[in-house]
Design a protein around this nucleic acid. Structure first.
Lengths: 220, 220
DNA sequence: CGCCACCTTCAGACTTCGTTAAGAATTGCC
DNA sequence: GGCAATTCTTAACGAAGTCTGAAGGTGGCG
């Protein structure tokens, strides 16, 4: 799950960033509205957490433009306690949920989970492919009826490769999924994870497309 | 993918040049605005990375003249942290994205990818010709329904020859596509790659135009 | 008929990817 | 708050794939 956090308060941002990172999300953090909008329009995220009071471009403006561009990305907004109008305006502008500062990190996590569940609900259901069954709700995976234990990174990779299968996922795309732009690991971690997946399933499940990336064949 | 980097700071330029080279781009690097503009107008690139503070001709000026000439080449500009006006002026002058120094190389890579994706998006779609179907998104190619494995260079060549077919691509043009002007291969590599393509498809797919270059016939 | 451009082939250099294993980092548990 | 277990990263090396440069062959064109 890749998530964009837009928050200009350094202390708060740091806190959220860490907390969500520990939850297993890949979190990218920006501190102004204009670059946030840029990223939202050009990269792929699963969710955005958006503070409304931002320099350079107001959060509301970001949200409005995002929706104008046709995106239905789940967005949770953060507002100050007394800014009731902002909240309403936020929902009007297309936010999916809001939270009033100061808030409890646990509540933020809960709401994100709920949001993701809801948005996944649009296209939920088990993913079944090549003997693998993957349950996005519980993150449980089985192979030919037997449960398989996957680590978080393995799960993320497999999930990405299987939804939908048949498409080549570039190395870049996968690296970004796992690491955002924090620090791209300058080693071969991707290959190592792929290797582990192949070992846990079948060695020909994931095909290498040399110089490009990996794919799971559509029909097998 | 051929890319022009215009950056006068040697250390930074070196860093970017290497990093992008390692990403598989063909990178040409110039250090002043006037030669940059010249190259941009006379050669073909897929993208330009343009520092705004340059000797001999300001980056903004380069950008403006480039746009005046009718080019819609994707351009990413680099600006100093506090030069807000420059940034705005840059976007006004037709930049597609910007990055504030100092920046993270990973983020630069991500933004370039996004830009290229966006610009490719303008004319995406499968390319179908003479039984060949080529998917620019995934770099997958098939011939008469069967997938064909192409190496990166083969793919680049085929893609160039097919978009659109019917035009003679000069040897010079193709060589530049593959190698930029860094190190022109002093051998017959082009012929070798063409040979491989003919072997993987049909030997009369690519016609030789003696003394000029190669072409794929328009209708077959 | 001879020159020149291009074709074909191939071996060695070079890159990229797979595989391991060990140590670092993180997490969970008491 | 410290220990144990899991997970992730790094690095080294080997395997496989790709590119290059060179040599010799073929065919068009004057």
């Amino acid at each position: 799950m890749r998530l964009l956090l837009i928050e200009d308060d350094i202390a708060l941002g740091e806190g959220i960033h860490q907390a969500l990172g520990r939850e297993g999300y890949t979190v990218d953090w920006l501190q102004d509205g204009s670059s946030a909008l840029h990223s939202l329009l050009s990269e792929t995220f699963d969710l955005a957490v958006l503070d409304l009071g931002l320099p350079r471009m107001d959060g509301l403006e970001v949200l409005r433009r995002l929706r104008d561009s046709g995106s239905n990305l789940p967005v949770l907004i953060l507002t100050a306690r007394d800014a009731t109008e902002d909240r309403i305006a936020g929902l009007d502008a297309g936010a999916d949920d809001y939270l009033i500062k100061p808030f409890d990190l646990a509540e933020l996590k809960a709401r994100l989970r709920a949001l993701l569940r809801r948005s996944a609900g649009r296209a939920h259901a088990l993913i079944e492919h090549a003997g693998i069954s993957l349950n996005p709700g519980t993150q449980q995976v089985s192979y030919q009826g037997e449960p398989v234990a996957l680590t978080p990174k393995e799960y993320q990779l497999l999930h990405e490769l299987l939804s939908p299968p048949g498409r080549v996922m570039t190395r870049d795309h996968l690296m970004q999924l796992l690491y955002g732009w924090n620090e791209e690991a300058e080693s071969n971690t991707l290959e190592v994870h792929i290797h582990h997946l192949r070992k846990k399933f079948s060695s020909d499940l994931i095909r290498t497309v040399r110089g490009v990336g990996y794919l799971v064949e559509e029909r097998r």
